[in-house]
């Protein structure tokens, strides 16, 4: 069966001719506004600087930052220890 099978049917024609009903214009605009706002939120949450790329940046930057601070702290400790020993 395909759609033509039904298209030949007078009953189907009668159903197809039923009016398309639209909702109240104010309600239609309210739904549009809410949906557009949601679309904007979803688009922002998936933008390269937020959802996708930011974790990657964090994965690179955070360990580098921690390693840098740790190395500086270690160098400072070693430097002070050596200075106390008179080197």
């Amino acid at each position: 069966m395909n759609s033509d099978h039904f298209a030949d049917d007078r009953l189907a024609d009668a159903i197809a001719s039923l009016p398309v009903v639209d909702l109240d214009p104010a309600r239609a605009e309210e739904i549009r506004a809410r949906s557009r706002a949601a679309l904007g939120r979803h688009a922002r949450s998936r933008s390269p600087w937020t959802a996708a790329a930011w974790p990657a940046w964090r994965r690179v930057l955070e360990p580098a930052l921690v390693a840098g601070v740790s190395a500086a702290f270690l160098l400072e400790v070693v430097g002070r220890a050596l200075s106390l020993e008179g080197f």
């Binding site: 398309v20 009903v21 639209d22 909702l23 739904i31």
Partner: peptide, 28 residues
Amino acid sequence: YRARIYSFLLRLSRHRDVAEDLLEETWL
């Protein structure tokens, strides 16, 4: 598609309020 989806939901549910709420949920 708004009116077509609404008509479909209205004929399924037979209730305007239900059709409107589900229409909104469909677009969301």
